[in-house]
């Protein structure tokens, strides 16, 4: 399962469509902002009572998010033992060096810039799926969800 964190509905739509084209089996969970993402991962807020919350195999994280931005979310994920092994890929329209550096300092697994050209966008979606789900050996899935113990 891919967790897609994207505040722009158009981009989310584009990504979802491109992904399902090449990896139709991959489930995508789309969340809108940083706060909601952390709530989901830590089982808080509106996710406090929901039972079934599978951990994602991959997190696609936009950089600029309302309320809590992408880097903050990344930092929180990598600070927690049980979430640290989940690959996090920044997927953003910013190619600022500073952002790239910051993300890598916070132990991001990959940093991708959304291409403007449609064909390249499709290539990215395809290769992203191939790389992470075909070639990449993923760590064993965490045993259970953590709850309220950031």
């Amino acid at each position: 399962m891919i967790l897609l964190v994207e505040d722009n509905p158009d981009h989310a739509e584009l990504l979802k469509r491109s992904f399902t084209r090449y990896s139709p089996d991959t489930a995508i969970l789309h969340l809108w902002d940083g706060e909601e993402t952390l709530d989901y991962l830590f089982g808080r807020g509106k996710y406090a009572l929901s039972g079934e919350r599978p951990l994602p195999d991959l997190i696609l994280l936009d950089l600029k998010l309302p309320k809590i931005d992408g880097l903050q979310v990344l930092k929180r994920i990598k600070a927690v033992e049980s979430l640290r092994s989940i690959p996090v890929v920044m997927l953003t329209s910013s190619d600022t060096e500073k952002d790239v550096l910051k993300a890598y300092k916070l132990n991001v697994n990959s940093y991708l810039v959304k291409p403007v050209e449609f064909n390249r966008f499709l290539d990215l979606a395809r290769e992203l799926g191939l790389y992470w789900f075909r070639w990449n050996k993923r760590p064993p899935a965490p045993q259970s969800f953590i709850k309220d113990n950031e």
Partner: peptide, 18 residues
Amino acid sequence: VSHDLRSPLVTIKGFLGM
């Protein structure tokens, strides 16, 4: 400018492709 102005471009180009 690099993010927020790019962002609609990605949308426009993407959906033109679609």
